[in-house]
Amino acid sequence: MLQSIKQQPFRAAVLMLVWGWLLFLVLAPNMLVVGASVMTRDPSTFISLPLNLDAYRQLFNPLYLDVFLHSLYMAAMTTLVCLLIGYPFAWALSHVGKRRQTLLIFLLIVPFWTNSLVRTYALKLILATNGLLNSALMSLGVIDEPARLLYTEGAVIIGLVYLLLPFMILPLYSVFEDLRQDVLLASHDLGAGRLATFKNVIVPLTLPGVLAGVMLVLLPAMGLFFVPDILGGSRNLLVGNVIKNQFLDARNWPFGAAASIVLTLTMALLIFAHRLSKRHLGEEGA
């Protein structure tokens, strides 16, 4: 060990930095959350002993279960919409010329330069009762009176899709880029039409990208609490809102921590599924 540090001091320093980072900024905070989730709520010190699983039991309270399921539903819808838009988009992106490709990816990334909170407020202006969208639809004669767009489930989903779509497109784009043209030709050559080739070759080979995209959209979609705060009103809450409220308003840290852990475990499960699908294709596949 000492020997190798002497031989490669730079390598050792980089490794120390990485491990230090993971230990103090990833592992330690997560252990604190796990710790908090099994402690007792305390009005003055936030958390105290004794250890118990009350917080987890509270998760099964029908009220919270409803919020969790509704949140999951909105996140799932967001993911589905992102997938439906992102899949053909990524396919097209991998088929345009190199120069246009660079431009399109650039355009996809530009919105990240603006704070997402600000962009969500901008969306609010568009969706508002006398906002841009309603005015446009009315002047076109599509509708007679302003539709109620804001503070609906739809508004939350639109907001989430808007913020998360790039996270679906980019991993999909990467699998489409890796999709070898000759493998598709081989499928046609062996007698498969477009549909059969799509079903038997394209879908299975892009599945890791789909799963990666779902991971990057579904989990954040349950946590982006400011989107319902701005666009959703009081009835369309996400798990993220529940967690935020427990920590900041209700001061129930154990419960908030337990909810976070459930979210983290869901994520872990998805990562596991993703790795399985990658292994299924083999190291050099996908």
Partner: peptide
């Protein structure tokens, strides 16, 4: 189209279905 031709191809890099 290729799928309706009674000919088959052996590709340069084999083009096997990896999955």
């Amino acid at each position: 189209p290729p799928e309706r031709r009674p000919l088959n191809t052996v590709f340069q890099n084999y083009a096997l279905f990896p999955h």
